[in-house]
Structures are given as structure tokens and as C-alpha cells.
Design a protein around this nucleic acid. Structure first.
Lengths: 346, 346
DNA sequence: CTAGACTGTTGAAAGGTTTCAGGACGTGGG
DNA sequence: CCCACGTCCTGAAACCTTTCAACAGTCTAG
């Protein structure tokens, strides 16, 4: 400690320079210890490492990024962090990112355009290497602007008609189809589709699949009702339940197919709490098969989506896009699967 | 376009320098447009803004941070992103951060030490202004190392005995107490506490509260059972249900108090699926009052924690710690509230 | 008409890292 | 004994932004 280090002012955090000074080596050597330790002799390396420890040195990632031009970080902008579907997708992304030694930041757009935009701008400024996003609107020009400015972006659980991005989806039309085929098989001839807003592609496509199956079964067009909700939430499901209960008895459906599990669970709760029996009075099919579906008031029949696989596949597409100069955009589509439980089987 | 800009090499992203060149002003002026637009004349400002738009300029946050020494970013390291309790807390943090014009990054430690450590190291290197964390172990020396190296840190939903950090918690002892008082009021004289691992402070404290209420009610010590689980998960709840079912009939409790809702829901499902009635055969109290508690097989009595308020309070403590030089560490404690539903009322 | 104030702009320095051309030194072969 | 080579290490340049002292020009008051 006889050699004082005047450069080490009070408030500042130690930098490589301070480490170099203390270890009596040059800046470059410290950097080598950090990045190519094999090129440094054992003794020197040890001295430098001790200096780092003594000083409590923490590498400044901003400076590194500035110099390197890349951050080894991905980000996933979730549509709704409180929806288990998306947290499972995030988990799949996270595991894939971890395997590739990438950090992952999670952001939540809360289904708000403004919030999504703010996150995207910030991530771009942070120079993340790539962005995964479940966008509020997959056709929004803001997305192509991101890639145009050099940040690769893959769309998760949605797709963009232009094919300008990689995307991973689950075949929603097929999901709607299997749900309704199941209900038709069980003998239902009057069914409601509950979901919204129909500005969401999935809400529309699940309906289209449902409609196709319905028509193919030769059932009356008007016997497949449509109940529009304002969001895909538990609360909206409850409200939808009340609306169904308000229908004249004979026009009431014997089964509902919900655009997601949250709606189904909300509706289920409303239905059960008013003393109706599921599935005797009303059969219910959900969508997503979140963990709570199996544990619900009545275990819920649901269309399962491979959530983690979806996330992992998205991450891998992004990794390819970042690293492989010959990358071609791909639209990967997974297949959903009906999990039949008590809510339709009785 | 007659004036070509040779500095604008192909692969590079435009920098302020390129913008300056194109707008025929100096670097400093571009920066002023960005940060103090009022000091720039309207004409110049417009020219610069047009140049930015033309070039697709995106500010390099790394460089800014390097220069400024701060990032205007907080991060929340969640213990388990798939647990709705934490996503609600995150939401509270997020709203508070948004109000203070701070960005928020979410990380998920997945209750793994190694993952938590990796996230913390990375965040420190990113020079986030502050970290919120629900740690795997609130006494881990890694946490004090973070603050020692200059990044303020507040502990969420846990507390550290040394008082070296700000923390926000909910009074778990009280929560355990009200849960058991409720069961005692309903006439139960043999109750099981289900939760674990007891290395978790909350699992212990909820038990202590339960125990205190039990003893004060003058009930036999041995009639408050303890069923230890390996985690606070749905699956563990189901397993606990099987263990209870395996007990000889007369030593079986008439009610259980679960350390969280996931356990309670898992247990509930197991119980219901084996044909027992809730609450007639077994009453159940959960903890957290997550959204699904109300919608469960039998609407679940649960101890509600003010989740968003918890997050918001944590964020505010951190904001104070970052901005206020006279900041004093505080341990804020919220009060839980029993929400009685069918699972105990019948 | 001038001193002073104000407005708008400039240019260089600083911030912490990585990279890279090259320097110092030691070793082995001719 | 010299050259070539290998091993370690050095020092400066570059990455992009913000800040700030200084400057030029314009306006105002005396």
C-alpha cells in the first residue's frame, strides 16, 4: 500500500486501468486476462486476478459493448406477463438462450402499443443482438423498422403476412377445428365460441377452424354462436358467462369453446357459482392448457400448445439469423393437441 | 445527395457524427437536439431531425451510459416467473418504474443459485441503477457484495436480518395466524400445515404464526401437524394430498393450511379427484390469493397479500436509495388479509 | 455607438473497453 | 555468434456519446 494510487478517486468504480496499475501491468494485459487467459503467463494472470478481487472490479458492459458492437443479449417482449402461457414460452426461450450463452431480458408490453414501442426503442438503443416479440399487432410497421435498422426480430405465437420475419406459431385453425370436432363428437348441436377482440389473429383463426369443422359436420350455420369479449382474460370470461346466462333458455348453447383458458376458467367459475353443472348443463373447452386448466373447478378440456418448444424454436431461429449469414426467414408452425378432461366428458 | 458521405461505410449504423455531417452541423448540436432541444434554433433542429430520420439513426445507449455513468434502468430478478404471485409483484414494480421514467428488465432466477448469480453479475456489468430481487437466500453474501460494489439493491418479499438492505415484506407470521384463527373459529381441532422447504423464511414464519394461534387457542400441540414439501408448487401440493390420504383415518386432519396457493390448488385437485368433498371432508386455506384461487375447483379461502403494492413500494424504496443521498434503509411490512371462500365455509 | 447580455453553435475531452501492430526477451538451430 | 521464432506484454487507436468552455453574432440599454 506504499504506492498510493491517486487515480483511484473516491466515488469512481475501479476500471481495467486501476486494475492494471495495481497489478503493475498494462491495460492490454488485463483485457487479455479477461478474454484470452491462455495468452497470459500464470504468474501475471494470478497477479491481475488478485488485483481485480482486491479492488472489487466489475467489468463495464457498456464500454465493452460500445467497443464490440454486440451485446450477447436477447430480449423477449411479452404480450402479457401475467398470462401463464407467455411465461412458459419465456421459459423455453430462456433455456435455449442459456444454452447458447446469451443473456435474456424479459419485457412486458401489457398488450399496450405505447409500452411495446417504448420497450422496442429502448432495446434497440441497448443494441441487443436480437428481439423476440409477441406483438400487439404483427403487421405494425414499427416491426419492420426494427429489422431495417439492423436488429433481427422474430415473431412468437403470431405471424406476419409479408414473410419478412421468422415466426413460430401453433396452427390455430387446426386447434379450433379439433376443439369443435370434439364437441360435435360428443353430440353437441348448439355451441358458442367465446373470445375477442377479433382484431387478434388467433381469435379469428381459432374461430375459422371451429367454423370449418362445424360446417363440415353439416350443422346449421346459425347454431355456432359467437360471443365477443374485450380481452382474453379471466374477468372477461366471467362476464361472458353472465351474458350466456342472460340468453333465453332455448337459444342457450350446450357447449362453449373459449379462445383461451383464462376465459374458459372465468366462465367456468361463473357457471359453477350459479349452480349449473359442467359438463351436464354446459360443456367447456379451453385453449392453451395452462397448468391451472387441469386443476380447475372442473378439470378443463383444452387445446394444448407446445409452449416451451415454441419459445425454444423461436430462440433458435433468432440465433441462426444472428450468426448465419445465409439465414433464410422461416415460418415454423407447431401442431396443437386436444386434451380431453371432465369439462366435456362428464 | 451530391455531397457523398464517405464516412458512411456499408455495415455500420449511423452515429451522431453521420447525422451531424448530413445536417451540416457539429456533433455537439446533434447532441443538443437530442437532450436539450430548447437550446437549438427551430431551423437547425428541423434539419437535424430530418437527417436522423433519413439515416435511420438509433442512439447508442452503450455509449450514452458509458459517458453518463447511469442507465436509468432497474431490474427485477424474480424467483419464479411462472408463479402468478411474482408476476403481480413485477407488475407493481413496472408501473412504479414507468411512472419514474425508468426502464425495467425482468430476469428469472428459477430459484436456482447459479442462475441468480449469473443474472446479478450481468446486471452489475450492465450498470443498472438498481436491483430488486426476491433472492433464493436473503442472507447470501453475494447480495452484500453487490451493494458494496455500488449497486443499490432492495429485497422483495423477503428480508435480511442485518438490515443492510431496504426490504418489503408481508407479515407472514400474522398471515399464518389469521389463517389458523379462521380454522379454529370454524371448529377445527386437527389441522395440517403443508409447505416447504422450511429453509424458506416464509414457510417457517407462516408456520410460527399458525403455531402461535394454535397454542393460544389452547389446542393440543400435537394436533397441529406439519407436512413438509420439497417446493411450493402445484405438483408438490398433489403429492401432499396423497400423503394425507395415506394417513390412518383417525389421525387425518379436518383442515389444512397451505404455505401458498399453488400447493393448495394441487392438494385441492388431488382431494377432489378422489371423491372427497371440500370443505366437508377437508377444509383448505391457501396463501397469496392469486387470481386462480377464486376460480379453483372450490373457490379457495386464502391469505391475500397486497402484491402490486408490495412491488410498487419496493420500487419506490429503490428510487429513494438511488436519488436521495440521505437515504436510510427501511424494512417495510405490509399486512395480509384473510379472504374466506367456499373451501372453508361450505 | 458601445458595453454587456444573450443565443446558438462549435470542437475537444472524457468515459472504459477491445484490438492489434509491434517491442522485449528467451530459446534453438545453423 | 547470429538469425528466426515463440512467448508475453505494451500502448495507442477506436467505438459513440455527453459536456463544457469558448466563440461568433445579435440585441438591448445607456
Amino acid at each position: 500500500m506504499s504506492k498510493s494510487s491517486p487515480a483511484l478517486r473516491q466515488g469512481r468504480r475501479p476500471s481495467v486501468k486501476d486494475v492494471a496499475e495495481r497489478a503493475q501491468v498494462s491495460l492490454g494485459t488485463v483485457s487479455n486476462v479477461l478474454n484470452r487467459p491462455d495468452r497470459v503467463s500464470a504468474g501475471t494472470r494470478e497477479r491481475v486476478e488478485r488485483a481485480m478481487a482486491d479492488l472489487g472490479f466489475v467489468l463495464n458492459e457498456s464500454a465493452r459493448q460500445l467497443r464490440m458492437g454486440r451485446s450477447n443479449t436477447f430480449a423477449y417482449v411479452m404480450l402479457d406477463a401475467t398470462n401463464p402461457f407467455f411465461t412458459d414460452v419465456a421459459r423455453g426461450i430462456e433455456l435455449a438462450a442459456e444454452k447458447a450463452d446469451l443473456s435474456l431480458f424479459l419485457c412486458n408490453s401489457d398488450a399496450r402499443d405505447a409500452r411495446e414501442g417504448a420497450h422496442l426503442a429502448h432495446l434497440q438503443q441497448q443494441r441487443v443482438d436480437g428481439i423476440l416479440i409477441t406483438p400487439v399487432d404483427p403487421e405494425a410497421p414499427a416491426l419492420s423498422r426494427i429489422t431495417a435498422q439492423g436488429t433481427p426480430l422474430v415473431i412468437v405465437d403470431r405471424t406476419n403476412a409479408t414473410g419478412a420475419f421468422c415466426s413460430v406459431t401453433v396452427d390455430d385453425r387446426l386447434g379450433g377445428r379439433v376443439a369443435v370436432e370434439h364437441l360435435v363428437d360428443r353430440g353437441h348441436t348448439r355451441v358458442a365460441y367465446v373470445g375477442g377482440p377479433s382484431s387478434l389473429g388467433q381469435v379469428r383463426e381459432r374461430y375459422e377452424g371451429a367454423r370449418a369443422a362445424w360446417d363440415e359436420a353439416g350443422l346449421a350455420e346459425s347454431d355456432l354462436l359467437r360471443v365477443e369479449t374485450e380481452a382474453l382474460s379471466f374477468e372477461e370470461g366471467r362476464l361472458a358467462g353472465e351474458r350466456l346466462a342472460g340468453l333465453p333458455r332455448r337459444s342457450r348453447p350446450s357447449a362453449v369453446f373459449c379462445a383461451n383458458d383464462l376465459i374458459a376458467l372465468g366462465l367456468l367459475q361463473q357457471v359453477v357459482s350459479t349452480g349449473q353443472r359442467v359438463p351436464e348443463d354446459l360443456a367447456i373447452v379451453g385453449y392453451d392448457d395452462i397448468a391451472f386448466a387441469a386443476g380447475a373447478a372442473v378439470p378443463l378440456t383444452s387445446v394444448r400448445q407446445p409452449r416451451q418448444a415454441l419459445g425454444a424454436a423461436a430462440a433458435e431461429l433468432l440465433i441462426d439469423e444472428v450468426n448465419n449469414p445465409e439465414h433464410q426467414h422461416q415460418q415454423v408452425e407447431f401442431t396443437p393437441e386436444l386434451i380431453a378432461r371432465v369439462s366435456t366428458l362428464g
